[in-house]
Design a protein around this nucleic acid. Sequence first.
DNA 1: TCCGATCGCTACGGTAGCGTAGCGAAACGA
DNA 2: TCGTTTCGCTACGCTACCGTAGCGATCGGA
Lengths: 193, 193
Amino acid sequence: MPRPRSDIARRKVIAAVTDIMVERGAGGVTIDAVAARSGVAKTTIYRHWPDRAALVLDTARSHFADFDSPDTGSLRGDLRTYFGLVDDHTLSGEAGNVMPMVLEASNRDPEMAGILDAISTERARDLEAILDRARERGEFASELDSDQLLGVIVGPVVFHKLVRRRPLSPSYVEACIEVALAGIAALAPDSPA
Amino acid sequence: MPRPRSDIARRKVIAAVTDIMVERGAGGVTIDAVAARSGVAKTTIYRHWPDRAALVLDTARSHFADFDSPDTGSLRGDLRTYFGLVDDHTLSGEAGNVMPMVLEASNRDPEMAGILDAISTERARDLEAILDRARERGEFASELDSDQLLGVIVGPVVFHKLVRRRPLSPSYVEACIEVALAGIAALAPDSPA
DNA sequence: TCCGATCGCTACGGTAGCGTAGCGAAACGA
DNA sequence: TCGTTTCGCTACGCTACCGTAGCGATCGGA
């Protein structure tokens, strides 16, 4: 076997791209800047990625790790944990800094839109798993479709962080959970009219 | 008085910048491209705006017109109208296409963040006016603060359009309104425990 | 009508970024 | 240890874009 391509270089480059993305936006990611910042030679970068676009996509992808859907035994407990995980893996830190860029680029880059869809789908799946378990326990019922449930439950939280750009305080998340659950319950078919 | 600066040129340039923003993103807005597309000479563009950044800011600002806060006589009617207006003036059409770019740029450009804050504040003020009138009619009560109310009511709608990038169907908006109002009512101090 | 400022056009120098070539040195697998 | 591959470095040609200068033509106000 020949000498493998250095994984250290790969990591250093992706870290540099992330930093530059945050500081200067997606448009500010130039190969020269990445090379200077990462300490990896420009030529080496081109040996790892065919061009700038691929590098940016790869970097974006790298920040949105999946997580295990929480299972604490109660719907509220699961949702609290879920929002903590979503915050960590999507809305805050590096992922949170990269997210608006992904959103913006998705409007014109199908590949970026694919990444966004993958994240969306994955997070939606996790929420559905939580709701399904709650349903089985008799803790939850609704005839809203999954798009509506997703919007009503995670919408307020994502909006607050991504659009209003305010930190997610526990009390804010708590209020969102309570309003959503109470609202859904009030609209459920067998609820008190 | 000397000859005034051509307003026609100004409009043509801003229209071109908008198109390019949508097609290629904020980074794709180059003065040469704007000149070619608008039919306005590059030199003339520089006579109107000091540099590229000012042009982009001015264009972004131009797309978010305020609107009159609706007053239909009922809370639900006001909210339905409100969401229609928000969609038209913020989430759809040209404003909707520019919005993700404003969001992304706001993370590092204070001036762009200022524009975003202005929109946010204005939209929040309109919602508060609606809620205040409903309160006076005895149609609405809540002890949630205005950030929480804003998030819970408009969060799901904005999330659906901006993050999930799905069209706002009347039935979706309707569901969001009902869940939010029911949830808020259920949490109100004098509601049935 | 006339004056002055604006307009469009062409051309320019300067900068920044792209992506590649060619080299010696270092590193890894066998 | 040996051989192969990758690495870092320098240099290169090319393109795109910036922002300005200088020109004649046009338009609008007084």
